[in-house]
């Protein structure tokens, strides 16, 4: 066990942990953040996605020690119910969710992709989302919401 310092959604935490503990377990169990979900536990489904170093990362396979000094952003860190982030607003406007289990991963992956490539084409957005599975077949509404958000950034 080691003392690990972790910055999540703007807040600094110090926790006693095994450095190999998956980041997801720390977020869910130690910090009570429920947006990142345990889906497959093998980086195959994307439900656990968070943003670290401006990249979408699978927190279920990322040891907490691999975060180092960088900040972790979960869906809770984007916006609140009272003041949602524009990408969250776009998803609400398009009704782009069904069961919602994959939603955190979809939104954060899309945001990371558009932060890196604001002019991403629809095909590039689909490529980015290739590793985030949705079993409810809400893909088309999600893609509309992401396009709406991408276009609003240009404006």
């Amino acid at each position: 066990m080691s003392m690990i310092s972790l910055k999540v959604n703007g807040r600094q935490h110090t926790l006693e942990l095994d450095p190999e503990t998956p980041l997801l377990f720390v977020l869910n169990d130690e910090l009570g953040l429920r947006a990142p979900k345990f889906g497959c536990g093998m980086a195959q489904c994307g439900a656990c996605t968070v943003i670290v170093r401006r990249q979408a990362m699978r927190s279920c396979v990322m040891p907490v020690s691999a975060v180092r000094e960088d900040e972790v952003v979960t869906l809770e860190g984007l916006g609140s119910a009272e003041k949602p982030h524009p990408i969250q607003e776009a998803f609400m406007a398009e009704g782009a969710a069904q069961c919602g289990f994959c939603l955190s991963g979809v939104i954060l992956t899309a945001k990371a992709a558009l932060d890196e490539k604001p002019q991403a084409s629809d095909e590039e957005i689909r490529e980015a989302l290739g590793g985030v599975l949705c079993r409810c077949f809400a893909h088309l509404r999600m893609l509309r919401a992401i396009r709406k958000y991408a276009d609003s950034r240009k404006a």
Binding site: M42, A43, Q44, T49, Q55, A56, M57, R58, V61, M62, P63, A66, T109, A110, A112, A113, L114, E116, K117, A120, E124, I125, E127, A128, L129, G130, G131
Partner: peptide
């Protein structure tokens, strides 16, 4: 590519277990 980097899943060492990156 944007949104899907190798390092999104692959760490700097093997993880324990089968079927993990």
């Amino acid at each position: 590519v944007a949104g899907v980097k190798c390092s999104s899943c692959h760490q700097d060492h093997n993880l324990t277990g089968t079927h993990v990156p």
